Amino acid sequence: MEKIALTQSAQKPSLFVPVAGLSLFALASGYLMSLIPLSLTFFELSNSLAPLLASIFYLGLLLGAPCIAPIVSRIGHSKAFILFLNILLCSVVAMILIPKSGVWLASRLVAGFAVAGIFVVVESWLLMADTQKQRAKRLGLYMTALYGGTAVGQLAIDYLGTKGNLPYLVVMGLLAAASLPALLVKRGQPQVSEQQSMSLSALKNLSQPAIMGCLVSGLLLGPIYGLLPIYVALDMGLDQQTGQFMALIIVGGMLVQPLVSYLSPIFNKSGLIVSFSLLGVAALLLLSQHSSMTLIIGFLLLGASAFALYPIAISLACDNLPASQMVSVAQVMLLSYSVGSVIGPLVASSFGQTEFGLLIYLGICCILSSIYIFAQLLINTKPSFSSP
């Protein structure tokens, strides 16, 4: 695993460029994630392609995560951000020009690689802070921008639809606009000083609950992005409200970020992961009901639960580590998240023939992760007795 030692430039690294670019990227990504499974029939592609498209995207994320550090080291954060946005843009162009299943699968693989680059670049840029409290605040800002943009992007499903080329042209325009802050603002960018390798022993010392938190986040969010829109539209019979309910999930994730930023420096982070996992179980029970109010609350709580896990986990992994290791940690956490995101849609699709199948799968993930991390907490806090 590679790591980059980062030094501050004469000026403080600007937060405007990564946050503004990330917000526009999130608008495009939020729309695109739900647009792809819902537009399959328009392009005469089978709905059975949806879980494969979701998994291969996260496979690209998984393959891309270890490759980002050398690229950032060579060309810097700003140019790397522009490069990955343009790769993602080209993958969308290929999809509308050649609507064939093989091309779509290849495009989503490339898109996953590009999104891995965007995440690692922005996370490492924002996590270049001197204290845990500053890192928690910046991570909260990162997650709020990401989820806020994604929530608004989900609403485009209801206003712009999912048929024709226009929705994809809107996505392309947003991705192009996301490059503008990095192109126009040249001052206050991080500078790369050297590249080193992270030892295997250092990797083994990373928090197991942190790695598990990122893994479970992927196991939840992969199916939520890739399969839940179809589940809401077809199994729940809410075709006209799919965009609104998907947006509620993202809004729940966005609203919980200030709470996560506040709680992370105060409480045991492993305990927080367990708490939010159990909150997810409660949310899924609400979603098995048919009342409109219960569904609204359930979707909000599901978003709060699923989207809280990653920032808490990465904050836990970064505890007591210097800024020079932020890229390395971001890569390892993204790898864990990606593994879960690749496996999640494939396993979740096997529950498809069961009533509430997707909800049952998500509940199993939350419960098993809670048991594992709670067991780790008990092991790590077990008192040791010695003779006086």
Results as ranks from 00 to 15, higher is better:
residue 225 Y to I: 12
residue 135 R to K: 15
residue 356 F to S: 11
residue 6 L to V: 14
residue 387 S to Y: 09
residue 357 G to H: 09
residue 164 G to D: 05
residue 39 S to C: 05
residue 194 E to R: 10
residue 142 Y to L: 12
residue 111 A to P: 04
residue 157 I to C: 03
residue 46 S to W: 04
residue 178 A to W: 10
residue 239 D to R: 10
residue 186 K to G: 11
residue 215 L to A: 07
residue 317 A to M: 14
residue 303 G to N: 12
residue 385 F to V: 12
residue 109 L to E: 04
residue 60 G to A: 12
residue 340 G to T: 11
residue 4 I to C: 11
residue 153 G to H: 09
residue 215 L to H: 08
residue 227 L to K: 06
residue 11 Q to K: 11
residue 105 L to W: 05
residue 346 L to G: 03
residue 301 L to R: 03
residue 329 V to Q: 02
residue 27 L to E: 03
residue 133 K to H: 14
residue 353 Q to G: 06
residue 359 L to F: 13
residue 358 L to V: 05
residue 134 Q to C: 03
residue 237 G to C: 08
residue 200 L to F: 11
residue 214 C to R: 05
residue 5 A to P: 00
residue 99 P to G: 08
residue 276 F to N: 03
residue 44 E to F: 08
residue 233 A to V: 11
residue 136 A to H: 05
residue 168 Y to D: 00
residue 252 G to N: 02
residue 26 A to C: 09
residue 326 M to V: 14
residue 315 S to D: 05
residue 387 S to A: 07
residue 287 L to W: 05
residue 43 F to M: 07
residue 318 C to F: 08
residue 87 I to V: 14
residue 111 A to H: 06
residue 243 G to K: 10
residue 13 P to G: 14
residue 35 L to H: 01
residue 211 I to H: 05
residue 265 P to V: 13
residue 293 M to Y: 10
residue 42 F to P: 00
residue 44 E to W: 01
residue 338 S to W: 12
residue 360 I to P: 00
residue 372 Y to K: 11
residue 222 G to S: 11
residue 283 A to F: 00
residue 234 L to F: 04
residue 378 L to T: 04
residue 187 R to F: 03
residue 316 L to H: 12
residue 233 A to W: 02
residue 272 L to P: 02
residue 175 L to H: 05
residue 340 G to C: 07
residue 214 C to E: 13
residue 209 P to M: 13
residue 89 L to S: 07
residue 48 S to G: 03
residue 376 Q to V: 12
residue 228 L to S: 14
residue 322 P to W: 14
residue 333 M to W: 01
residue 240 Q to A: 15
residue 205 N to S: 13
residue 40 L to W: 00
residue 269 K to I: 09
residue 381 T to N: 13
residue 256 V to D: 10
residue 158 D to H: 12
residue 166 L to S: 04
residue 329 V to H: 01
residue 99 P to C: 08
residue 353 Q to Y: 08
residue 278 L to Q: 01
residue 345 P to K: 13
